[in-house]
Amino acid sequence: MKKSAILLALILFGISLSFAQNQTEKNIETYSRVWDEILNNGEIDQINNSSFDENVVIINSPENIKGIENFKNYYQNFLTGFSDINFDIINIFGQDDNIVKHWRFKGTHSGDFFGIPATGKNLDLEGVTLVKMKNGKILEEHDFMDNMEFMGQLGLISDAQNMKLIDSVYSAFSSGNVPGVLSQMDPEIQWNEAEGNKYAEDNPYVGPDAVMNGVFGRIMTEHEYFKLKDIELHEMSNNQILATLRYDAKWKNGQAYDAQAAHLWTLKDGKIVAFQQYVDTKKLAESEND
């Protein structure tokens, strides 16, 4: 009798476990299908009471978003703000009514997105969503992603790597590693020397070779030494870095000079795309002609 009771308990446990597994699989299938239709097919009306609980919630800051209509309005921003959307679920798994989704969202910011005008930038971002289901419907979502990366890709804040890149450029220049400096430049970089500087005659220098031949090569040929000192970097908006510094240099056929200067660097996708120099050109000219 005791053995029969144990056997019955095991059978019931197996049935319960199988039912739970089947329900989890159905939840994952429903969830994956719904979001494919909403984002990849642009079917915002799939956010309805057939697939979403009427009390659906997005865990959000500063306050949660509740209810189907508010949920729908929230995600309409993604369809309005981005074109060429490609939403991919990289991995998804669950237990009972809980689902974890690792996703990747790609698109072009071509429209208004939560009040942010189109930037034309491409977005390629990964994140994770914690999901709760109820009776086969989506009840709650909580997204986790790198918001700084999100804003940076749209060009709304500067890339955190910009400061490191420009710092490495000055380090390379100071050590005489000119090829290292050139390697950080975009092939179409536009380099401008300060107006009044003798090297400004062919502004803008387009491309690393033009910068090498028109600026760096001439500096090295015409100077006994040319050093940069007191360099301070200042992060700006729109992926720009401002450097304040001094030139400690001496012309081969002239005098030494110590001149205040500023450099405005513009970066994109990890490369320098523009440079603007500001310097006391009067001091440079007078020292060369003395």
Rank of each mutant, 00 (worst) to 15 (best):
R246E: 12
S16V: 08
Y225A: 13
H142W: 15
M163R: 10
Q76G: 05
F173K: 04
N41L: 05
K252R: 01
H223L: 01
G270S: 06
Q46C: 08
I189W: 06
W251Y: 07
W251D: 04
A194R: 04
N162D: 00
Q153C: 06
I99M: 01
T108V: 14
Y205L: 02
A256L: 09
Y170H: 14
G217T: 05
D159C: 10
V211H: 01
L8N: 01
G207H: 09
E222I: 06
D269H: 02
G152M: 08
F105Y: 13
I65F: 09
I58T: 04
G115D: 12
L267F: 08
I92T: 12
F19T: 08
N27G: 01
M185A: 11
F93E: 10
G120F: 11
G81I: 08
K250L: 03
F275I: 07
F114S: 06
D290K: 13
Q276S: 03
N27S: 02
H223I: 15
Q260M: 13
N213D: 03
W251C: 02
G111T: 09
S168A: 02
H102S: 11
Y75S: 02
E149T: 11
I47T: 00
I99S: 01
S32V: 14
D202A: 13
K250S: 05
K66S: 12
V100F: 04
E188R: 14
W191Y: 10
I166H: 03
N49C: 10
M151N: 13
E25G: 06
I92A: 07
L228N: 09
P204I: 08
N122E: 07
K26Q: 06
P187Q: 11
Y257A: 01
I65T: 07
G14F: 13
I189C: 00
F144E: 06
A118G: 10
Q76M: 11
S83A: 05
N203K: 12
A5V: 10
R33M: 05
N64G: 08
L123E: 03
K101S: 12
K282F: 06
A274K: 13
P117W: 10
F105T: 07
N203E: 11
L130Y: 15
M133E: 00
F93S: 10
Q153W: 09
M236V: 15
K252P: 02
L242C: 06
M148K: 14
L79D: 00
F82N: 03
G120N: 10
W35Q: 09
I59D: 01
T281Q: 00
E149W: 14
K198R: 14
L182M: 11
L264H: 02
N192G: 05
Q276E: 13
G136Q: 03
D186Q: 01
N238W: 01
E43Y: 08
P208W: 09
P187W: 09
G107D: 00
S83T: 15
K282N: 12
V215K: 05
I59M: 01
D290V: 14
F71H: 06
A194K: 06
I92M: 11
Q255S: 07
N253P: 04
Y170A: 03
G152V: 06
K121S: 00
D53F: 15
S175Y: 00
